[in-house]
Amino acid sequence: MTSAHIVIADDHPLFIFAMQEKIKRIWPEVIFASASNYQQLFRILEQQEASLDLLILDLAMPGCEGMQGVDYITEHYASLPVIVVSGHDDFASRQHCLAQGVVDFISKTEADSVLLKLISQSVFADMKNINSINQDAPETDLFPSLTASQQKVLVLMADGLSNKAIARKLDVSEKTVRVHASAIFKQLGVENRTQAAIKYKQFGTLHADS
């Protein structure tokens, strides 16, 4: 395969932009489509089904409740490989998605190389350059003033997770999350997590549209 058509569906523009950049570093010929809600995604699937090679899906997007979105997609587009990438990695959701036939269900906090290897296995015939990827690379380098750990906290914060939930996802203490949050607020010039999430999304929108 010399090219591939990948859809990234996520309601955070920064995640879409960052993921496109990571994929293009390895497979620059990839063609992308993106959706920030299920209505947009369903239109893309309906209009471009024959040309699509992979869907990278965040479950928690506007337009569907719970598992309705992934259930609809796996029923009506059964031949399309789907990788679920979620900020809410619970056992029941994972098992449900796998039972529906998705390629895999991974957390947004996992190393980039995990998703990139799944993309390679699902779409491409080789593992070109996969092993050269830094396992500890941060979620995004669009905020270079933040450490890798702080960037991971910011991504989960923008996903709406509480400090307790973030601590559980990252396997750290709530105190550590609070320390990271304070540093994030200072670096971004904001006063609270809501403002940080807004700045995250605005920054991602600007870069995604550039």
Results as ranks from 00 to 15, higher is better:
residue 1 M to G: 13
residue 1 M to D: 08
residue 6 I to M: 06
residue 7 V to Q: 06
residue 7 V to Y: 04
residue 9 A to H: 02
residue 9 A to I: 03
residue 10 D to F: 02
residue 16 I to Y: 06
residue 16 I to A: 07
residue 17 F to W: 12
residue 18 A to R: 10
residue 20 Q to S: 04
residue 21 E to V: 07
residue 21 E to R: 13
residue 21 E to W: 02
residue 22 K to E: 15
residue 30 V to H: 06
residue 30 V to A: 02
residue 31 I to W: 04
residue 33 A to Q: 13
residue 37 N to M: 02
residue 38 Y to I: 12
residue 41 L to T: 00
residue 42 F to S: 06
residue 42 F to P: 01
residue 45 L to M: 00
residue 49 E to A: 09
residue 52 L to H: 04
residue 55 L to S: 03
residue 56 I to K: 05
residue 56 I to P: 06
residue 56 I to R: 02
residue 57 L to D: 01
residue 58 D to I: 01
residue 60 A to E: 12
residue 60 A to R: 08
residue 60 A to M: 11
residue 61 M to F: 03
residue 63 G to A: 13
residue 65 E to R: 12
residue 68 Q to E: 15
residue 68 Q to I: 01
residue 69 G to E: 00
residue 70 V to P: 01
residue 70 V to T: 06
residue 71 D to G: 00
residue 71 D to N: 07
residue 72 Y to A: 09
residue 73 I to H: 01
residue 74 T to D: 06
residue 76 H to D: 00
residue 76 H to P: 04
residue 77 Y to A: 00
residue 80 L to S: 02
residue 83 I to Y: 05
residue 83 I to L: 05
residue 85 V to H: 05
residue 86 S to K: 02
residue 89 D to K: 10
residue 89 D to H: 11
residue 91 F to R: 12
residue 93 S to I: 07
residue 96 H to Q: 06
residue 101 G to H: 01
residue 109 T to K: 10
residue 110 E to D: 09
residue 111 A to T: 07
residue 112 D to C: 07
residue 112 D to V: 04
residue 113 S to C: 07
residue 115 L to E: 08
residue 115 L to G: 00
residue 118 L to F: 02
residue 119 I to Y: 03
residue 124 F to D: 02
residue 125 A to G: 03
residue 128 K to E: 04
residue 128 K to S: 04
residue 128 K to H: 05
residue 130 I to G: 05
residue 130 I to V: 11
residue 133 I to E: 11
residue 134 N to Y: 02
residue 135 Q to D: 09
residue 136 D to L: 13
residue 137 A to W: 12
residue 138 P to D: 08
residue 138 P to A: 11
residue 140 T to Q: 14
residue 141 D to K: 14
residue 141 D to E: 14
residue 146 L to C: 11
residue 146 L to M: 14
residue 147 T to G: 10
residue 151 Q to V: 08
residue 153 V to Y: 03
residue 153 V to S: 08
residue 155 V to R: 14
residue 156 L to F: 00
residue 157 M to T: 13
residue 160 G to I: 08
residue 161 L to I: 12
residue 164 K to M: 11
residue 167 A to L: 04
residue 168 R to I: 07
residue 168 R to K: 15
residue 168 R to A: 15
residue 172 V to A: 10
residue 173 S to L: 04
residue 174 E to R: 10
residue 175 K to D: 14
residue 176 T to P: 00
residue 179 V to E: 15
residue 180 H to I: 10
residue 183 A to V: 10
residue 184 I to P: 05
residue 185 F to G: 08
residue 186 K to G: 03
residue 186 K to P: 01
residue 187 Q to C: 07
residue 189 G to N: 14
residue 190 V to N: 11
residue 191 E to H: 11
residue 193 R to F: 11
residue 198 I to R: 14
residue 199 K to L: 14
residue 200 Y to F: 15
residue 201 K to N: 15
residue 201 K to D: 14
residue 203 F to G: 05
residue 206 L to Q: 14
